[in-house]
Design a protein around this nucleic acid. Structure first.
Lengths: 242, 242
DNA sequence: CGTCAATGGTCTGTCCATGAACCTTTTCCG
DNA sequence: CGGAAAAGGTTCATGGACAGACCATTGACG
């Protein structure tokens, strides 16, 4: 009709992807990721089951199974009764311990490419928002927390939290979700970066540049700074694993 | 511990999103979107049920129910027997007909912001790939098809197909998915743009600029061109709806 | 010190999705 | 012309997820 379908079969293959996984596994994954990314810090309480299950759009039964799985992995502990609840008890593992986090090269490249697009985009958007005072303070505090983190695990978590904070300030749910996914996909591998003091300092300086640009409302500068930051991380990772 | 959780509750609220919907509904939505975006053009056959169900990660039963729903909506017809199958019979509705596609303003803004980030990113990435001859030809053909589309509906579909082609050439699954979601979220609203010849011409010229930059391997130019294109569309839509 | 509210823990019936086997229709091809 | 192949159509047993009601425990607060 309209055109000879040159490269016809291409689009369907690219677009139609498997949608669903097990609800239970998805929930476990989501919670574990949230904990590992530092959305909930050590000692912090998860919301009550009834509330959390509703927010996740999942039956309480299923949520409870998921929490049980986390408990068996040692990520949380649970206490009953009033004032009880489920508490995060996550100490980031030492790098090098545990299984080698070698993922498929293609997936790594994908995640790095994706991150390099969405994180600068999030910074760009955030810089264009009119931020309230407490939001500005939160951003500054998030960046400062990365400077202050003293050990490897704390650094990883603070870093995630900073990036998620930037995404949150973009005020775009789709962007927030994308950044979360990028961070989750890279999480294991970022944890493998040996944290030389030089690298950390450099990384924190780049964070500060991003923060300054966002606070100044300079969207292009914020994006450029975040791009530089992503590229630096990317180079480290590729050098390390490729 | 580490820091006073300034803006503590913020991250959980931003990150923990409802994950699951009904599998059946998800499948219907995904197929309907693919058809409306022109992933399958009018008269084209869907893959056989057994194959499609596997690709979608869904039981054949469920897929069949979804297809039945599409059939009732008049999007497809089905013939049995060898050489049979399910065929797309979708003629894009005239703009103005049907219910007003007014979605919540926040969702519109979100989708526009997201698109303005991922589409230029996709173009940027595509320009950095080493494209094979048939991929280059496909890209050129996709852009040309938009010029050649004669009526409103055909234009919409060709436009979607062009954008999805760019995304596909980025070779990043996460990027492809993001562009698909952005297109799907905007689809209804883009369809509401009155297609003045001037707008179309302008839009097509921008497409050509994107194509030229991608083929030249000039990533920054490709991104800039796509940004311009998104901004133009955005301005049209915002002017139209809000 | 006792009560009660807030929290996790348990049980059960219902519905949806799965996977696999099997049936029916159509057409291509020998 | 007749069979085999390729498609859609049907059925069924199983397990997972859900919703809701109810139980058990514990600390906060009067």
């Amino acid at each position: 009709m309209t055109q000879a379908p040159l490269g016809a079969g291409r689009l369907p293959e690219a677009v139609l992807r498997p949608a669903t996984a097990n609800v239970f596994e998805t929930t476990v994954e989501q919670l574990a990721t949230a904990i590992r990314l530092g959305v909930f810090v050590d000692g912090e309480q998860l919301p009550p089951e009834r509330e959390l299950s509703e927010r996740l759009g999942v039956a309480r039964n299923t949520l409870r199974d998921a929490i049980a799985a986390l408990r068996e992995s040692g990520l949380v502990t649970t206490r009953r009764g009033r004032g009880g609840g489920t508490v995060v008890t996550y100490v980031t593992p030492e790098p090098g311990s545990g299984t080698a986090p070698v993922r498929r090269g293609a997936a790594l490249a994908d995640a790095l490419d994706f991150r390099r697009i969405v994180e600068p985009g999030a910074a760009w958007l955030a810089a264009r928002q009119e931020l309230a005072g407490d939001q500005r303070a939160w951003l500054v505090a998030s960046a400062a927390a990365v400077w202050e983190a003293d050990d490897t695990g704390a650094h990883r978590i603070a870093d995630s939290r900073f990036h998620l904070a930037v995404a949150t300030l973009s005020a775009s749910p789709m962007v927030i979700e994308s950044v979360t996914r990028a961070q989750a996909a890279l999480g294991e591998m970022l944890a493998a970066i040996p944290v030389l003091p030089r690298n950390i300092t450099h990384s924190c300086e780049q964070h500060d540049a991003v923060v300054a640009a966002i606070l100044a409302g300079d969207a292009d500068a914020a994006r450029a700074a975040m791009e530089e930051h992503c590229d630096a991380t990317s180079a480290l990772l590729r050098g390390l694993l490729g």
